[in-house]
Design a binder for these strands. Structure first.
Lengths: 132, 132
DNA sequence: CCGATATTTAACTCATACGTTAAATGAGAG
DNA sequence: CTCTCATTTAACGTATGAGTTAAATATCGG
């Protein structure tokens, strides 16, 4: 629904491949050409070219022509949306966990007060795997 | 190469889908059942079930049986590897950009000194090769 | 045990991802 | 112009992803 959904899709999808992550890490030490970028990998040049296309489509890198080469570099702010989402995720993750802790405390309180009606924390834990 | 590559693959891949991201956000407000989780979406229950399987395989959620339901919750620390990678990416991204700025400054300096041979800002200057 | 409810598995379709090799493009050098 | 190098595009095979409907499984409540 949010208009940024596609952007996030592309960014995370681009990051979900070890070759592409390695390419990004390599670009951290400065812009370089496709051939140089491809060198450490065992796959064909067209394969690398496609990975670069994916990264470019995800706005994570830029390629600009320079003589017969194409200079690849990290796209400034290209990681922003993904970073922002992850930062939000980090907060709600920890928040959720602290809520859970709180809830467990309440449960404990409640059961100490002796109201024994329905104190199921993990209801009916019986033997799972009954043979058919 | 790193043994964590697959873990990151799965995490980012899991995050690369808006339905799954929405599910995670929903889980931020506390554990819930599959059915409840599926309710806001337009897709079938089996589809949701598969999304949950993907999230579980990526260690982002946990599902534990509870009566005839399965209670889904965020997996504590499940986001850790992805968060760590992203934090590293954030640093090397900005580092790389500040290096770029530095480099542009040097270029400018150089051209101010009047050495008019080949003062193209975008050519020359390859192979900086500062091992990071 | 039976029937209802929650969820998953099976079997299938369609689209996209990732790799290959071979051919095409674009720019510099002779 | 022609040769060569860097890179992409084309065409293809195969695997995986995301969705569907129908059937299976598991657990509770009577």
């Amino acid at each position: 629904m949010t208009p940024s959904a596609e952007i996030l899709d592309r960014a995370f999808s681009a990051l979900a491949d070890p070759t592409r992550r390695a390419i990004l890490e390599r670009l951290a030490s400065g812009p370089t050409t496709v051939g140089e970028l491809a060198e450490p990998f065992d796959i064909s040049l067209p394969a690398i070219s496609k990975h670069l296309a994916v990264l470019e489509r995800a706005r994570l890198i830029r390629r600009e022509p320079e003589a017969q080469w194409r200079r690849c570099s990290l796209h400034p702010d290209g990681l922003r949306p993904a970073l922002d989402w992850m930062d939000r995720a980090r907060s709600f993750w920890t928040e959720s966990l602290s809520n859970l802790a709180e809830y467990l405390n309440e449960e404990q309180e409640e059961s100490r007060h002796g109201s024994s009606r329905n104190t199921r924390k993990k209801a009916g834990r019986r033997s799972k795997k009954r043979g058919v």
